[in-house]
Design a protein around this nucleic acid. Structure first.
Lengths: 236, 236
DNA sequence: CTTAAACTAAATCTTTAGATTTAGAACTTA
DNA sequence: TAAGTTCTAAATCTAAAGATTTAGTTTAAG
């Protein structure tokens, strides 16, 4: 899986507040013909300026660091929008950490306790544009991921008892749609080419069907039930 | 990784509309001392009633089936709330399919083209409560997952230009909080033990700061900016 | 052919909402 | 101490919002 010799070495920056550990990794990586460590960083701020300056191919990021944590650091680096790929590195296989690191864009995640072969393997895979997560960690990730999804579902299911929106007529839905954009009776009347009194009639019917007393409550009900789903009314 | 002999065999149901393929898997699994296929199902409806009846330990679910697709099927089975673990099975490594299957709770995902050892490995891992996703598919999953997260971020970033909510005073935030529950001036006044005119003053200041004209727009602005974030005002 | 929704609209009336101005008390900061 | 914020409150309006009743069309269902 080694790349041909005529390709330049992949440039790596190691971020770890433990100097000894960083040095160990550096030496380990420099033994490989395909990689070279171009810098070490002992804290996040130094790391970010080095990364901005050198735009390395890969960053090995220790997650457990003082001041700014590694997760935040990854997030910051991702914001730079470089091609730099980040591999997270920790001592423990905390599901939450793995989930968060992968969520914000880490391309790999390995444990410090893993064999050095794992590290090189991770570098190889990530260099080839893949994502590397050892199966143990992969399993951990999914525990967390699926638990999170289940919570989402349970959360939404709670308000799925009965959706009063289903009782609305087409016209009433249209009117409600305009209400959820913060438009007045007059405005709705103009947009639908009907009189203001008609709008009032519709709105009153909507209130009764949704069992609310005013437009604010109607709008809140509609939004909570996912009315208009992903459009999110724009104000400003 | 085989379990001790005194433990009963894990009971497996195979769901696949291709009878030959299902039979092949059945024979393959029955060669293992730890597993036995207790039923085959050629379509989703049969599968679900069999699963309800036998509550197997594992379901091997082909995703590409006529009528109801396998993803929906997994979702339906998960809704039953059984201990049954589902392993998805497809011909292609479609990132979207993998993502959706894992998202709704599949405990494993393997390709039909993979060696039979992979299948047994998946059964073993899943039986032990882990999640099994071969590294190739794991990588595919994360491509999709991270792309989805990036889109989320981009979506939210668009309205992060400036959050006018930051200019609100504490009291104004309180008032806005009550407005986002659909409460009237009088109601807010009672809850905060202040006069109605004071509430009006606050509300007017809120309108100016949020650059809106009425409470509906203020509430919409607040919700869009994540005011109260995950609480979602309850009406009804 | 009749019944029942659904959409339309008017009239009337009460209640909130919202704009605007002014101002006192408490607290903070230069 | 003076200036500035924040929270409080009142008075006075105007403009919306909302409740209620009645009623004429149209269209689909029986």
């Amino acid at each position: 899986m080694r790349r041909a010799d005529f390709k330049r070495k992949s440039r790596v920056i190691v971020v770890d507040d433990n100097y000894d550990h960083a040095s160990g990794i550096r030496e380990l990586i420099n033994l490989e013909q395909d990689y070279e460590v171009i810098a070490n960083a002992g804290n996040v701020n130094v790391a970010i300026s080095l990364i901005k300056k050198y735009q390395p191919d890969i960053v090995l990021m220790d997650i457990n660091m003082p001041e700014i944590d590694g997760i935040t650091a990854i997030s910051e680096i991702e914001k730079l929008g470089l091609k730099t790929k980040i591999i997270a590195l920790t001592g423990y296989d905390d599901a939450d950490l793995i989930y968060r690191a992968m969520k914000i864009g880490a391309k790999g995640y390995i444990l410090k306790t893993m064999a050095s072969a794992q590290l090189i393997r991770a570098l190889d895979e990530v260099t080839m544009g893949k994502i590397y997560l050892p199966s143990v960690l992969c399993s951990k990730f999914f525990e967390y991921f699926q638990a999170a999804e289940r919570n989402e579902k349970a959360y939404n299911a709670a308000e799925d008892e009965e959706n009063l929106l289903n009782y609305l007529t087409n016209r009433e839905e249209e009117v409600l749609g305009l209400l959820t954009e913060g438009i007045t009776y007059k405005g709705v009347a103009q947009q639908l080419f009907i009189s203001e009194t008609t709008v009032k009639t519709h709105v009153n019917n909507i209130f009764q069907k949704l069992q609310v007393n005013d437009r604010t409550q109607a709008v809140l009900y509609a939004i909570n039930k996912g009315f208009g789903s992903r459009k999110k009314a724009k104000i400003a």
